[in-house]
């Protein structure tokens, strides 16, 4: 292989102190994700899947182990370097959308470009293009409270895409949506994947996970299974 895998996790552990107790959220995770994959990370609550996602997203650092992102060891980087990686290489999509409520859709999507230092003219154009690509070209001036749940999540997806990141990290992206809207969002993810993006989906819902092409199951801080999904759901659900 000429280029290294996108993500290589080797022996990742994460310990928390909860009062006097040490909680072992991750107990040695090895994982490789290649460019262009569509992966679902599944697990019941408390399994460590959120911790894993936070580490992959560089929001958190592992207690031990090595995390290579595009061939760079990021497990021991400082705040400024991690902030830059989150800015350029990671696009987050959250269950609760996490938009700035007082800012317009356009301003929300511009936010990562502001931290990237893009000039105002350029970041406007790129933000408008990203919003148009998720079908919200006519909602630029709307603020989150004026948008439906599905529209909000599409703003969040536009924000995740706008910097052209290496990975889209989606944490229960349909958790706060009705099932019809949820399926629209999953169809959007499918299109984004088709356009060449790498998607890591974190969920506890089997129906959602089955949209991915590879399903990794986490239990008690370890990888329980890691299997390809030969029959991914595309767009519309088979069973609702």
């Amino acid at each position: 292989m000429s280029t290294p895998p996108l993500i290589v996790l080797e022996g990742i552990t994460k310990h928390y102190r909860m009062g006097s107790e040490i909680v072992e959220a991750l107990r040695g995770v090895d994982l490789t994700i290649r460019r262009g994959e569509y992966v679902a990370i599944m697990g019941p609550s408390g399994s460590g899947k959120s911790t894993l996602m936070n580490i992959i997203g560089c929001l958190d650092t592992p207690t031990s182990g090595r995390y290579m992102l595009e061939g760079t060891d990021v497990s021991s980087l400082g705040d400024a370097a991690l902030a830059a990686i989150r800015n350029r290489k990671i696009g987050f999509v959250f269950q609760t959308f996490n938009l700035l409520p007082r800012a317009t859709a356009l301003k929300n999507v511009e936010l990562p470009l502001i931290y990237a230092g893009a000039p105002p003219q350029e970041r406007r154009q790129r933000a408008i293009a990203a919003l148009e690509s998720v079908g919200l070209g006519d909602r630029l001036r709307h603020k989150p409270p004026e948008l439906s749940g599905g529209q909000r999540q599409r703003v969040a997806i536009a924000r995740a895409l706008v910097t052209g990141p290496s990975i889209i990290l989606a944490d229960e992206p349909t958790g706060n949506l009705d099932s019809k809207t949820g399926m629209e969002i999953m169809a959007l993810f499918h299109r984004i994947w088709q356009e060449g993006n790498t998607i890591v989906l974190v969920t506890h819902e089997e129906d959602i996970a089955r949209h991915a092409h590879r399903i990794i199951r986490i239990r008690d801080g370890r990888v329980e299974s890691d299997m390809p999904n030969p029959t991914p759901i595309v767009g519309a659900p088979l069973l609702v």
């Binding site: 929001l59 705040d79 400024a80 350029r88 936010l111 931290y115």
Partner: peptide, 16 residues
Amino acid sequence: TKEIGIRRAVGARQST
């Protein structure tokens, strides 16, 4: 707090 989290997630440094 939430806003701070959002800004950090999309690339704000502590210093920002």
